[in-house]
Design a protein around this nucleic acid. Sequence first.
DNA 1: ACTCTGCGCAGAGGA
Length: 900
Amino acid sequence: MNIRGTVTAPGEQRTVTTRYGERDLAEVVVRPDDDVPQTVTLWGKWAETADYLEEGMELLVTDAEESEYDGETTYATGKESYVVVEPSFLVNVTDVRSWVQCPRMYYLNKLSAIPLNYPVVKGTIVHEVFGDLLRGRELDDSIEERVEEVGLQLGLLGRETDEVAGEVRQNARAIEGWLEQGVLDDTDDWRSEYTLISEQFGIKGRCDALRRGMPVELKTGKNTNRDPRFQDKIQAACYALLLQERGVPADTGTLLYTKNSALDRTEETGDLSPAKEFSIGKGLLEFVVRTRNEIAAAEFDMDVPTGYEANAKCEYCFEKDTCMVVSGRLNQESKAGQIGRPIPEEERAYFREKYEQIERERRATHREYAKLWEQTAQERADDDRALIGLEPAGQTQIEGGRWELRARRTDDAVSKIREGDVVLASKGDPVSGHAELARVQQLGDEIVVTTDEPVELRRLDVYPSEFSADGMLTALHDALLKGDERRKDVLFGRREPEFEADERTFIGNNDAQNAAVNLAVNAKDCALIHGPPGTGKTYTIARTIRALADDGNRVLLSAFTNRAVDNALEALREQGFGEEEIVRVGTESGVREDMQDVRLERGGDPGERVAELEGASVVAATTATCGSRIMREQAFDVALVDEASQLTEPATLAAINLAERFVLVGDHHQLPPVVQANDAEADSEASADGDGAGGDLSTSLFQRLVDLYPDASVMLDRQYRMAQRIQAFSSREFYDGALRPANGEVAAQKIGDLPNVEPESLPPTLRTGVAFVDPDGKTAGNTNPVEAERVTELVSRFANAGVAREDIGVIAPFRAQVAEISRRVHESVAVDTVDRFQGSSKEVIIVSFVATGDLDSPIFDDYRRVNVALTRAKKSLVLVGDERALRSSPLYDRMVEWAT
DNA sequence: ACTCTGCGCAGAGGA
C-alpha cells in the first residue's frame, strides 16, 4: 500500500545490525490527511532521505510493507518501494539531468535561461528532423523546412541556410544509418515526442522517441566513450521510470550520439554505431528518484545550491565562469569560488524577496498540474479547464508528417482554452492514459488541433506552463546582475530620476498630455505616465513614441497583453508610422489580424529577417515576448510599457532591461497584476523568514515608482469618456477629485445624443446617467438568476429605446454570472467580467453585483475592481444589486448613495 | 470564497 502524508518528525539516519548484516535506516513519522500519525521505516539508501527531510514536507512511500509490532501497525519500505519527497512539486526531466551534472548548473539554468547560441539551435533542428524521419518524412524536405523555420534565429547568429543544412545533414546521416539497420519495419513500434507526467513521482518531461516502448534520446554531440554520459543515462532513466509507472516494461535505454562517425572508432570501443544501449535497473531508477527528491527538498526551502552536493569537478565545467560571477555578485557559497564584488545588500535582499515570490508562483502552476489528476473530468470542465465529451471527427496526416485531429462538441460549455494554445489532447484520461501535446487551430463547433502523433480526441485540457515564472527569474537576473548601475540606482531609490529641460509643444489642447510627452521625451532615466480611465492614454503613447523616434531613438513598445500592444500600434500607425518603421514580434494567434502585416515571421531567409527586426525604429511585443531569447538579443534607447500597473515587477523588468531609459504608463487605481499564489501563503512564509521585506508580486513597479518619485510622474487629468454624472464617483473616491471631463461636450453627453434613441421611451430612472436597481434576487453559487433576468430586461429596455446592442455592455464580477447573462441576451451585447472589461468602454453599461445579504467574497475587497466597473460607461450606467449587501461595506454604501 | 494573460510545449549543447 502507499503511505502519503505530512512529515511530523523527519527522523535520523542510523545504522543497525540485522540478521542480514549492517543496514541503514531512518524512522519517519508522517500524518496522512486528518488521520493519526504513522511511523514509516526507510531502509537502505532511502534512509538518506532523512538528511534533508523536514517537518511539513509531503512524503509518499509506495508499496510500503505493513507489519504488526507490539500490537501496533508500522510500515517500512520494501523491495518495490519508492520514497518521494514533496510529490506535488513537479520536476522536469532536464532539471534532474542538470542537477546530476552539478546542482549549481541546475540553479544557473533556472536563473538566467540559456541564451541564443548556435549549438542549441542546431540541436533543436536535428531533433525536429529526427521526429520527421520517424514519422516517415523524406530527409531533404525535412531538413529544408526545419532550417527555414528558424531563419530569424540563424540570422541573429550570423549563419547561412545552406551551411546549417549541410551540418544538420551530417547528423541526420547517423540517424538514417541507424534507422536503416532494419528497425523501421512492422516489428518495430516507433513513436516520436512522447509526453509524460507523473503524479506519483512528481516528474514531467518529453521523451524524444519510444522504440518498442523503450526510451530513445537523441544527442547532437559526440561521445566516443564506451558508456553513454551519466547525465544522458539519467535522462533516459527518468522516462523509463515514468513508462514503468504506466505498466510499460521499459528496462533498456538508447542514446543516439549523432556526431559519432567511423572516424571516431577507437581501439577501446571499436564502435561505429552512434547508438548506445544500456540497461535500466531498479538501482538506477531509485537513484533518479533520490535525485529528484533532493531537488524537491531544496526547492521546499528555496535553498541555493553550492556545488558541494555533487562531486562534479569545476575545472572541467563550461559554466565555471558564470557560476563564479553569479556567486560573487550575489555573495553565494560556491564550490567553484567567487569572482567580483557583491552587489549591495539591499539589492540582494530584493533578489531574495522576488526570487521567493516567483517560486511561489511556480508552485501555484504546479497545483494547476495537480488538478489534472485530483479533479474528475467533470470537475475540470466545470472549472473551465477542460473540454470534455468531444466526438472524434477524423484524423489526417498533414504536411510534415504531423497530425490534424478533429472533433465535434456535444455541448456548449465554455473553457479557458483559446485558439493558438498548447493543450493536452486525450481520449479521456490525460495523466494515466496517454495524452498528446496539441496546438489548438480552430475552436468553433468543430475543434481542430495538431499533434505529433494521433490520439482519439475526446478531451482537451489546459496545459499549465511555468514559462511565466521562468521569464520573471530571467528578468530579475538580468536586471540585477547585468543591469546598468544608473538604472539600478533609480530602481532602488538611490537616485532621483533626471530630466532634460527642453519643453516643446507636442499636444496643443491638453496640458497634462503635453506634459506627459515632454516628461517622457526628456527623461534621462525614466518617466511615469498615470492615465485614469478615458484620459487618452493611447494617444499620448503614440505621440510620445512619434517624438522619441523623430529624435532618433530606437523604441521598444511593450505591454502585458497582446490587445494593448496592438491598440498602441494602431494609434502609432495613425501617427504616420510606415510599415518599414515598425515591427510586431509575437505569435500568429496572439497578434491581431490588422497587425499581421507588420508581424515578424520567425522563418525565412536569415539575413532578411534580421534586417526587418534590426531596421525597425519601433519594435512592439508583449513583456512575455521581451523575455524571449530573440528579444533578449535586442537593444533599445527607450522602452515604453503600457498597462504597467497590471505587471509584476519582474515582468516589467523583462521589457525595461532591453533599453537605456524607460517610460511606464498605467493606472494603479485600476486592477493590479494577476498573481496565482495567494497572499495568505506569502504572508506566512515571509514572516517565517523574519525577512520583513513584505509585499508580493501584485505590487507593480509602476505603483512603487509613482510612490517613490512623484516628480517623475504626470497624471492625465482630462477624461474623454464619461458624462460628468458618471465620472463623479470615481474621481472623488479614487483620484482625489482630480479627474475631470475634458470639455463641456463630454461632461454633458447623455443617452439621447445617440442616433435613433428616444429617451422618453425609457423609464425616468434610466434617463439620468446613473441608476441603481435592486431586483430582490438570491445568489446561487456565483450566480444570481433573478438579477440576470432583470439585467436582461434592462438590456431590452435600452434596445427598445433605440440603443444599438453593440453599444451596450454588461459587467459582472463572476464568470458564472457572465455565463448566466450571456445565455439570455443577444450575442452582440458584450457581457464579461470586470477584469476582462478593463481597457474598453461602452455607451451603456449595466453592472450586475450578484451578491446578496453580504459581500463576503474576496472579489469585492479590491476597490480597484469597483473603479474599473464604474468607469466603462460613457452615457448611462446602471448598477444592479442587493441594496442590503452593498450597504454593508462603506465604499459600496457610498456608491449606492451616489447612484440613487 | 475570486479574478486570469502571457508563451512554440520542453529541451535543444559544449568537451
